[in-house]
């Protein structure tokens, strides 16, 4: 279909030259796209398959290997409470960070889209700034802020008469601290995306709704959210894929005595690069991949359902 397009324009001229141009195009076409496919073959396709192969072996860094079939997987499912703990932590952190994050982003975008607002560019810049900061820097500064004894957050809470919270000592504290880092880094990013979506919605719709007597909240629920649906799905997907792979924040904040900060990717990393059980880590990697796909599909399904009222 598409291949007919280029042949047309110059056809009346010289058919012979056209033919050589066609051969030329084919040669340079393959040549020009080949770097991606070669690199992806080496660092993408091969590792993907090899991870699958590894996951059926007991394999360590000394190179001793032994085919064990599905043993790594059955071990993961039946005899590894730490893996399930890591999965539970990952999902908990992901929920605590994603839901408020997307709601806050939506509200901020809605406010930024008000016509009378002055200083839009400054607000946008400020809100977006966290996103360019490295995860490492974010994790370090928030670790300081969430300090139990001298952290600014406990200090602020104490002004409201709340006793110091031992952020590193409990599931709740650790999950909230890590989720806060994620939220801080991504609210602005999602606001900017929603804002772009909002700007593409026609003003007439809102004017008509105002004439019909709908207030701002009603407009948000019955015009804005349904029309933003594709973009909401996009952001939900992105936060699912990113959130389930969370690694640097818990690593730098510390997993804590009960492993309450251990996430799946962190567990994978430790199995692979501190205990060097490559086979087992490979099985974790594939399982994580399936979990991400599963969650993405469920989320897309749910987002589609809820919003189409």
């Amino acid at each position: 279909m598409a291949s007919d397009q280029t042949i047309q324009p110059a056809q009346p001229k010289r058919p012979k030259k056209r033919y050589s141009q066609k051969v030329n195009d084919r040669r340079s076409g393959y040549l020009f796209v080949s770097p991606f496919f070669i690199l992806f073959g080496i660092f993408g396709v091969f590792p993907l398959l090899f991870t699958a192969y590894l996951s059926f072996h007991r394999w360590n860094i000394l190179g001793t290997r032994e085919f064990v079939g599905f043993q790594n997987y059955s071990l993961l499912f039946t005899d590894d409470p730490l893996f399930w703990k890591a999965l539970g932590n990952t999902i908990s952190i992901w929920l605590i960070s994603t839901i408020p994050q997307l709601i806050a982003a939506l509200i901020i975008a809605f406010l930024l889209n008000q016509a009378f607002l002055k200083g839009k560019a400054i607000f946008r810049l400020g809100i977006f700034m966290p996103n360019v900061t490295s995860v490492v820097a974010v994790a370090i500064v928030f670790s300081a802020m969430f300090g139990t004894q001298y952290g600014i957050i406990n200090y602020v809470l104490s002004l409201f008469g709340i006793d110091p919270i031992h952020w590193r000592g409990s599931y709740f504290g650790t999950h909230v601290a890590i989720s806060t880092m994620v939220m801080w880094r991504w609210v602005g990013y999602n606001s900017i995306i929603y804002l772009a979506g909002l700007q593409s919605i026609s003003k007439d719709l809102y004017e008509a709704a105002t004439i019909d007597g709908a207030n701002k909240i009603q407009q948000l629920i019955s015009i804005t959210i349904p029309l933003l649906k594709p973009i909401i799905i996009f952001t939900v997907l992105q936060s699912t894929i990113g959130g389930l792979q969370i690694f640097a924040e818990p690593m730098l904040f510390g997993v804590g005595g009960n492993y309450q900060g251990l996430t799946v990717t962190l567990y994978l990393y430790e199995e692979a690069f501190t205990r060097f059980s490559f086979g087992y880590a490979a099985a974790i990697a594939w399982l994580l991949f399936f979990i991400i796909i599963l969650f993405s599909l469920v989320n897309v399904f749910l987002t589609k359902k809820i919003k189409s009222t």
């Binding site: 991606f36 590792p47 993907l48 991870t51 792979q245 994978l268 994580l288 991949f289």
Partner: peptide, 20 residues
Amino acid sequence: FLLATMMIPPQLGLIPNFMI
């Protein structure tokens, strides 16, 4: 195909890439 490759999480190839 190129678009589809964007879906693959980087962790999946972490260990073989380290070996390479």
